[in-house]
Amino acid sequence: MKKSQIFTRGLIKENAVLVLMIGLCPALAVSGTVRDAFGMGLAATFVLFFSNIIISIMRKRIPNEVRIPIFILIISTFVTIIDYFMQAFQPSLYRALGVFVPLIVVNCMILGRAEAYASKNSVINSALDGLGVGLGFTLALTVMGAIREILGNGTFLGMAIFGEGFKNASVIFMILPPGAFLVIGVMKALINRYYK
């Protein structure tokens, strides 16, 4: 498979959230605004990229019987790094994402890529794969965040995009939990209808 294909596959064709339906918990929980969604996506991309690289470097040395605990340890190392990094440099984003930052460690997308790809392929391919899948995740979250923020709050990245009158007409439940389920349900239905 060509290098560019490895990268783009995870981006659109095998998008983790919208096509494979994994990593749903953070996707639904933090897509209330574009900023939260984008921040969460980048944090997960960071973890996925570096854990894929390390696991791929060590793939010949990790004993097969205990590979899953070792993968989890490597992943949790990077989760702790991004956790403390965000706490220090992006405190308001960190507070908004809350418990979902440490919970990146149980995102099945990341362990799934470690097990299915990084433990069997070369370092460069694994890095590309991690980057592609991670950015695909970011893309899906950001699109959901944009839909929910625009409909629910009338803003995009905090900037008002409709006139004053929209304040009274906004679909307030879009930024509340039910909106997440409805948005991803409608998006999945459109994908099923036009993409297959």
Binding site: F181, L182, I184
Partner: peptide, 20 residues
């Protein structure tokens, strides 16, 4: 096209609306 996941999401959304 809404069988399976999409209708499950929408049903869950309506449940969440009730729980709100």
């Amino acid at each position: 096209s809404i069988k399976g996941y999409p209708i499950s999401f929408i049903a869950a959304g309506l449940m969440a609306l009730a729980f709100l």
